[in-house]
Design a protein around this nucleic acid. Sequence first.
DNA 1: TTGTACGCGTTATCAT
DNA 2: ATGATAACGCGTACAA
Lengths: 358, 358
Amino acid sequence: MPDKSKTTVDKPRGKYTIRDIARLADVSRSTVSLAINDSPKINPETKAKVLKVIEEVGYRPNQAARNLVSRESGTILVVAPQIDHVFSDWYFSEGLSGILDATTRLGRHLMVQLATEDFKKSSRALKLWREHIVDGILAIGALRSDEYIQEIAAAGCPVVLVNSMADGVSSVTAANQAGAIRVIQHLHSLGHRRIGHIRGSQDVTYASERLAGYLKAVTDLGLDPDPSLIVQGWFGQRSGAEAMTRLMGLSPRPTAIFAANDLMAIGAIEAANSMGLRVPGDVAIVGADDVQLARYVRPTLTTIRQSMYTLGEAAVEHLVAHIEGRKVYTPNVQVGMRLVIRESCGARTMGVSEESAH
Amino acid sequence: MPDKSKTTVDKPRGKYTIRDIARLADVSRSTVSLAINDSPKINPETKAKVLKVIEEVGYRPNQAARNLVSRESGTILVVAPQIDHVFSDWYFSEGLSGILDATTRLGRHLMVQLATEDFKKSSRALKLWREHIVDGILAIGALRSDEYIQEIAAAGCPVVLVNSMADGVSSVTAANQAGAIRVIQHLHSLGHRRIGHIRGSQDVTYASERLAGYLKAVTDLGLDPDPSLIVQGWFGQRSGAEAMTRLMGLSPRPTAIFAANDLMAIGAIEAANSMGLRVPGDVAIVGADDVQLARYVRPTLTTIRQSMYTLGEAAVEHLVAHIEGRKVYTPNVQVGMRLVIRESCGARTMGVSEESAH
DNA sequence: TTGTACGCGTTATCAT
DNA sequence: ATGATAACGCGTACAA
């Protein structure tokens, strides 16, 4: 049987192995490895020869084999909540962009999963880590009731929460409380003294932080502390409208409303309109998050926003530090929030520079 | 030196190997492998014993090792275009959801990348495949000018395009031309005879298909074929407004406009409003894609939509068939488009059932 | 049921 | 100083 020694071999499906390269370049496998990894202990000429062959055939080392040795996959998992149009909210959209960019910048890959009930219960996230498919996990929009996160962290898997918190898990959050305080201060400066709040559920970290900010500001500014000014909503537009109806039924009626997110604020605007109240003439409304819709509803919505992009980036950096076992000096990063003033709050035409782009 | 034989070993970081399990269950590695893979050629009792140990310590086989043998990674790459708010459009949002669900259902993982200039030029996608990091590639929103796609396909990597086309690459597309025809037919049935079109660039498959549909319908219905009724736009809101200004400058002025996407249609509405024209009183406007905004602008936008979710699902199934080397009988799947009638078209209050959910 | 070769690189050791 | 040899990482598959 004739050996098909050194004639050019053309592989059928474009995938070569280090052995092929070694044979084509007429060196050993280890030499090829040294060339690939740019080792100082290889003759430049040999290296050039090997690299030339690699270039010619488009060889790429099999990551599965490398991962086997390195015990890493180079991949990060991001878990997004399973809500309608996860990606359509500004919130997640921006966050994911930041995560994606940072991940790429740090030379890693990004895998995506939705936090379905099944996903949570089967602790698939933990499995992915144990199977060496991902090196660490990023959870965006996780709820406080998602204990599966803590479970994962407890098992030793690097986890970072984006804009939510859980005991024993590191996180990167926005200054939600400070942002809420700024909203109330602003309303106060416009003369409002009886300000209502449409709060979200306890389950969502940022919502309870915003509630805390509201309470603190109300106390500090000496505003009307009537507990019936706080109504529970469930983040959706409809629940915002319902909460608004209740708030407008109070007497005396509050003159301004701060909703824990934009969707509820938009619902509140609609409810106000359908009750014949003018926004902001009769009641001022402020939301939070600055979702894309905020600038399209009438009147446009005053809101607070954090840079979810920055938050996403910071989270990735944090997670990678974890994975690489580097010392993490800032266990809980905080990103500031900015007030975006639009009509619904009764503002003068204040220029909000960042809006010009659109 | 005493051997630490069969006492329970507790690994520090929760990652066990098949050897650990073999030792703990007092069997060989191969037996463990048989147990894991539910082979018929293993004694049920032995299997139970092994599985018990596996359960106790939370062992999961290392995918890197498995991939090495199987020569697959179980991961699919989806490449999304790098535009502002990629994920915020209904278009991508729905598409990605479908992709994600189908991927999970088929037991695979999903990796995400943005098609940045750098990404395209460095043919990183091809590298990912050659490195066995991904088994195949899905491109959503790819342009006709993205030759890198063809390059990848030519190298033997399974590729499927979502709603765009390229020679030699399989794709899953919506019936864009048929959709456009239906729009024009609808406008015709409302009495319009001089209908303008704001077209997108050649580079985008769906845009040129919509243009083709417009042309065909105009011909077939015997409408005014004036070429100046077709104005080029660039998909953005502003370009839609500019195109609209030109169209409204024609005489006689067209009574209806079909824009190749919703953003341009929204720009057109704004332009019409600022020119003192009423929509749909003075001019009817129809868009395409049914982005989330479509139902929030005033007047709400009549548009056509395909089920991007379905398209995404179909694309994944298609790709997986490719990867598994199954015969693909339908090289180009087509998904139908539906007309969504709202105010901007001057419709009577026609019930559009699907909108009720909101 | 088990021993063992194998998949594909990496790295430590040994030979030149 | 270079390059070759061999062991290794972790499962899988086939022969024994």
